[in-house]
Design a protein around this nucleic acid. Structure first.
Lengths: 341, 341
DNA sequence: ATGAAAGCGCTAACAG
DNA sequence: CTGTTAGCGCTTTCAT
């Protein structure tokens, strides 16, 4: 069913059909109504290829995330979707699995498909990979900082300082020997946390001990394993900072199995603020990442860019959205430890 | 950058350019190489609109799910993505929020966009809504049964009999007064579980008591609330079947807070087999849904359909993939209760 | 207010 | 093996 058939049946030219779709006010009310009815009866739906070919606009934005089975990224997606849906845009969702070449492949694909905008989450690309995109005047917004990719529109949260805040809080409570279990993935994010850890420990005049830092896979099992290693140390830490809640849960399981009490014997602090973290025993102190909000803000920025609203100044924006420490019981905060719930 | 410019610079016709892209063997090796180089230097990327307009193929399949912040649906998405990526297809992901009109809107959108195939998860559509799609010869595969939408290619799991299996297991263990907390969403799925519950209870000759069935929002809080109601009953159940693990976690929290022991005082069985369910205390007996597999199988079926492989018989397929009961400690299974881990 | 017609970039049938 | 050319369905000048 195409525009020609509708035109024929309605007894008008294709131009008029096109007009009722694109500039309804430019056509006589009765003709319009008549045509609308014909369209209905023929179940006509305009062909987006033809339209796109002409207008060079797709009504699609691409969202590239590292991994689909990760609540955090999905929250970003939810934020993006909220804006996109309101703007009547569709989302093409692709996952990179933290593979730079896969990421590049998708970017090429997006360019060929002429998506109207791209949101890149935790990208591994470098500035040089970006030349291609720039030439296409496709709007791009990055979520998550990456030192190798600068000068682009960016929405991010500061994992390093958020980690610093968490560590400082542990120190305030009185912990001196603080260990760390950090996840192999997500890579960039966890490197920031590690640096935040190192920096804060040294700044606060504590002893920075590499043997108190272990790397494990980002999973319950990984946390379990990491805690095992730390507990086996002759001089084991009295508090552990874990780079994800999911690992923290595994670590807590191990600590409990070892017959130790959290936080009395060993305190634990996580990262992510999963829903579940507020319900496990003891409730997990953790850092809440503003994922949904980052998705929302990034999408809004992208649409502004696409609509040319921010072209005036032209300078790429960098928007920082802070993460927030959620103090609960597992860190050993005195007020909380005394709480029953 | 278009095919014409490349042709000009290469000193050949556009047809030859098109050929190196689509039928590389039909062009002389040296011409081909020459053209490839020119393309590279011009950073030429074919325009998919033009191509799609001509071929009426997009290289995109649409995946419509109810909700993005749900691990189960995301596992399906992962399965679909695995197949799609291998076939060099992109996925357009959209969410319906269990809103039939939103779902219909997206379907229209997919038709206009001429996606090559559609996978509908837990669709609320009726047969009548499908006339439109059928006319377009777009392949469709459904995931999740829906009585109002029949005669389509379908991949599903049987929640009713899976629930039956769970309940029967509880009965075998010796529980007689079995209650149920069921989540408002996902609607169709939970109606099946409710029916499975009712049927099994009656079939096994137990007393079916509506007051032992409560409906709550599908969340930790909902489970907590549901358990509260059940515990407040004068004649409270000695075992509770909960339609989702996330609710079961809330219910367990409430039960513990009430000073009761799981499973000794009250047994709990969940549904979903979340990762976390194997780590909470006591480990949760639950039903594992084959989400990833359903996504995988549905996508394969879709591509078969698209490639015409199954057109021979033409009959729509219905593929059942069974859910599986995971017996752990929370249900009070004797062998498990005695286990330390 | 409406129509005629030129293309958007590409593919494939046809001719050489 | 390569070139010419007719569309694919739509939007948009430019006329009327």
């Amino acid at each position: 069913m195409n525009i020609k058939a509708v035109a024929k049946k309605a007894g008008v030219s294709v131009a008029t059909i096109s007009r009722v779709l694109n500039h309804p006010d430019a056509v006589a009310p009765d003709t319009k109504e008549h045509i609308l009815k014909i369209m209905e009866s023929l179940e006509y739906t305009p062909n987006w290829f033809a339209r796109g070919l002409k207008l060079n606009r797709t009504g699609v934005i691409a969202l590239l995330i590292p991994e689909i089975l990760d609540m955090g990224y999905m929250e970003i997606a939810k934020g993006v979707e909220a804006v996109a849906h309101q703007k009547k845009y569709n989302i093409m969702l692709c996952t990179t699995e933290e593979d730079r070449s896969k990421e590049k492949g998708y970017i090429e694909n997006f360019i060929a498909r002429k998506v109207d905008g791209i949101i890149l989450v935790s990208s591994f690309l470098k500035n040089s990979d970006f030349d291609q995109i720039k030439k296409q005047d496709i709007s791009v917004v990055l979520i998550g900082k990456n030192e190798e990719l600068t000068g682009e529109n960016l929405v991010y949260t500061d994992y390093q300082s958020a980690t610093g805040e968490a560590i400082r809080h542990m120190i305030e409570i009185g912990h001196r020997k603080i260990g760390m279990i950090y996840g192999t993935r997500p890579k960039i994010e966890n490197m920031d946390k590690r640096e935040g850890f190192r920096k804060t420990i040294t700044e606060e005049g504590l002893n920075y001990r590499p043997e108190h830092i272990v790397e494990e896979e980002n999973s319950i099992e990984g946390g379990f394993l990491g805690a095992s290693k730390l507990l086996n140390l002759k001089d084991r830490p009295e508090a552990i900072f874990v780079t994800s809640d999911i690992m923290a849960i595994g670590a807590m399981e191990k600590i409990k199995q070892a017959g130790l009490k959290i936080p009395q014997d060993i305190a634990v602090v996580g990262f992510d603020n999963l829903k579940i973290s507020g319900y496990i025993e003891p409730k997990l102190t953790t850092v809440a990442k503003p994922m949904y909000r980052m998705g929302l803000v990034a999408a809004r920025l992208l649409f502004d860019l696409m609509e040319g609203d921010r072209e005036e100044d032209g300078e790429p924006q960098e928007i920082l959205i802070q993460s927030k420490l959620k103090v609960r019981k597992s860190c050993g905060h005195l007020d909380r430890v005394k709480e029953i719930f």
